[in-house]
């Protein structure tokens, strides 16, 4: 009886906890505009997540092309941790 009770209670508890945790840690996506230069087509704008900024170790790229904060090569070349 006790074992059966636990077999029902344990998964129910785990599922409730996971659902609660998912809602508790829900965060709004923060996006920003970024720009890249495509040969023949000029500057293109894409929406990216906010983990790209002026600092970081690896470059922020879109399809392998470096992203910039403005449609200008003199602007910040975006990087991410």
């Amino acid at each position: 009886m006790k074992a059966k009770f636990f077999k029902l209670l344990l998964p129910a508890f785990a599922i409730l906890m996971a659902v609660g945790l998912a809602f508790a840690t829900e965060n709004e996506r923060v996006t920003q505009e970024a720009h890249y230069f495509l040969l023949g087509q000029g500057w293109q704008t894409v929406m990216i997540e906010d983990d790209c900024d002026a600092t970081g170790q690896s470059p922020c790229e879109f399809n392998g092309i470096q992203l910039y904060s403005e449609p200008d090569f003199a602007s910040i070349a975006l990087r991410k941790p």
């Binding site: 998964p11 785990a14 599922i15 906890m17 996971a18 659902v19 945790l21 998912a22 809602f23 840690t25």
Partner: peptide, 16 residues
């Protein structure tokens, strides 16, 4: 239990 926590958490997070 741990796998359930992981899967339900990640699934609900995605569905939200």
């Amino acid at each position: 239990l741990l796998l359930t926590l992981l899967f339900v958490y990640t699934a609900v997070s995605k569905l939200i």
